[in-house]
């Protein structure tokens, strides 16, 4: 009877581990910021997810073709270029924190993004200024 408990529990654990492992192997991506992407030796055969800030004045939108180019900068001021095609999130604009996911080409310093997420420039963090 105890054996049954243990065997069934172990079985589920194994399934869980197997799924986590295979799931991660095929779907896992590295999550980096711009500085880390530029500094580290990352396996670039896999997609990367990169967070950074949209550099002011670098956004080029070709709305008619749904294409978007911009530079993503890290804390140290280095940047990568990003190309994205698709629906642009509402919150996307200059100086906003974004997360992009896609394949990165080190020679061109270009990230071909399939996913573009813009963090809400929420007023959660903003300060109330004294107006009068």
């Amino acid at each position: 009877m105890k054996k049954k408990y243990i065997i069934s529990s172990l079985l589920i654990c194994l399934v869980v581990l197997y799924l986590i492992f295979t799931g991660f192997k095929s779907e896992g991506v590295y999550y980096l910021n711009v500085d880390e992407l530029l500094a580290k030796n990352v396996d670039l055969n896999k997609d990367v997810r990169v967070s950074g800030i949209v550099e002011r004045g670098t956004i080029k939108r070709v709305d008619a073709e749904k294409k978007l180019y911009f530079n993503l900068i890290g804390e140290k001021g280095k940047y990568i270029e990003v190309f994205y095609e698709g629906i642009i999130p509402d919150a996307f604009k200059d100086d906003v924190g974004v997360i992009v996911e896609g394949s990165y080409n080190r020679d061109k310093n270009l990230l071909n993004a399939e996913v573009l997420l813009a963090k809400c420039p929420s007023k959660y963090e903003s300060k109330i200024e004294k107006t009068k």
């Binding site: 991660f24 896992g28 590295y30 999550y31 997810r49």
Partner: peptide, 16 residues
């Protein structure tokens, strides 16, 4: 390195 997973991971592992 920070690793992360995307939507397809969740779909894949939760379906079974």
């Amino acid at each position: 390195n920070k690793a992360s997973v995307n939507i397809s991971y969740y779909n894949k592992v939760s379906i079974p």
